[in-house]
């Protein structure tokens, strides 16, 4: 409660003052100090956003007991790879990477194929049943996914899919949000463009591949990165769908470690598991971070393209 009351007025106030510096085509009379203020504000905020992650990356190299007893201290001479060594010995993180890669590629491909195609139909065609179908999509968006887990598991059992890649890949392969988002994006593609192509003899599927896809390519890149992140970081369904170690994804490995800490701390090895968890989390985060930094231009431009100017 207190933060809301404290933060909102302050935020609003600074929004007003800072905004003076930020109008794009500015003739800036008092621009300089305000720009410095904006820069300082962004820098502080960015540091606050980065600090916890940096803490985790650094702490993974500290002796496990020090992470708990002296979370902020950093004894450079005591840095160790012990957490990593133990983690590699204790959990099948290599297998986790492998499984995550398989799921990522197949599930990602399905989402990126099915979602824009269906969204195209939702956005640019009128057909009986469209509103019913799209309404159903909206309902599933509002239904907490957690409640579907047991019904889904029973379904997996009936299909004989427990502990298979299908079980990890197919449920949630086309999530409602992807449809929802892509529909907005494609809706903004001018109809004239499509009609012109149609007049020129382009087939319906051709219009999609030759007109729509190229136009929304930036948004597709955005969807790709978002999808990759969601699949990579998903753990609620994989934890129950992959009960065998053989099928464990990276996040399943992480949550198996975390269970010893958060589920019940009635274990004797609280500190060592914390150390292992931070090591595993670092290893999991770094590849994603690298991909993300490398692709950030596409990603951000993609989301920016989420609302095409009409």
């Amino acid at each position: 409660m207190t933060t809301t009351h404290a933060a909102s007025p302050a935020g609003t106030r600074s929004a007003r003052t800072r905004a003076t510096a930020t109008r794009p085509p500015g003739q800036s009379s008092r621009g300089l100090p305000a720009a410095v203020g904006s820069q300082a504000f962004l820098l502080l905020l960015a540091l606050a956003f980065l600090a916890p992650v940096v803490w985790a990356l650094v702490s993974a190299f500290k002796p496990a007991t020090q992470i708990i007893s002296d979370p902020l201290g950093l004894d450079l001479t005591a840095l160790t790879l012990e957490n990593y060594r133990r983690m590699f010995a204790d959990v099948p993180i290599g297998q986790g990477f492998l499984n995550t890669a398989v799921v990522l590629v197949t599930k990602g491909a399905i989402t990126l194929f099915c979602a824009p195609l269906a969204a195209y139909a939702f956005a640019k065609y009128r057909f009986p049943g469209r509103d019913l179908l799209f309404g159903t999509v909206l309902i599933t968006l509002m239904l907490p996914t957690i409640v579907l887990i047991i019904p889904l598991l029973l379904e997996m059992k009936a299909l004989g899919w427990v502990n298979t890649y299908q079980a990890l890949v197919l449920p949630g392969a086309v999530d409602a949000f992807a449809i929802f988002w892509m529909r907005q994006v494609i809706a903004d593609v001018p109809d004239e463009l499509l009609d012109a192509a149609r007049v020129d003899g382009c087939g319906e599927f051709g219009i999609f591949t030759r007109i729509v896809l190229p136009v929304i390519r930036p948004a597709l890149a955005g969807l790709a990165v978002l999808t990759v992140m969601n699949i990579y970081n998903d753990f609620v369904w994989p934890v129950v769908a992959a009960s065998s170690e053989r099928m464990a994804t990276l996040q399943v490995v992480l949550s198996t470690l975390a269970q010893n800490i958060t589920g019940n701390r009635v274990g004797a090895d609280y500190a060592t598991v914390t150390g292992e968890l931070l090591a595993a989390a670092s290893i999991a985060l770094v590849p994603l971070l690298i991909v993300f930094i490398a692709l950030q231009r596409h990603f951000i431009n993609g989301i920016l393209a989420g609302s095409v100017k009409g």
Partner: peptide, 29 residues
Amino acid sequence: NNAKIRMRSFYRIAFLVPFVTPLVAVAQI
């Protein structure tokens, strides 16, 4: 959105890093 602000790529990444960090690690942090 202001072209005069420097290091915009850095900020965009910085603000999105928490978004890509695995939640189980975040909890411990």
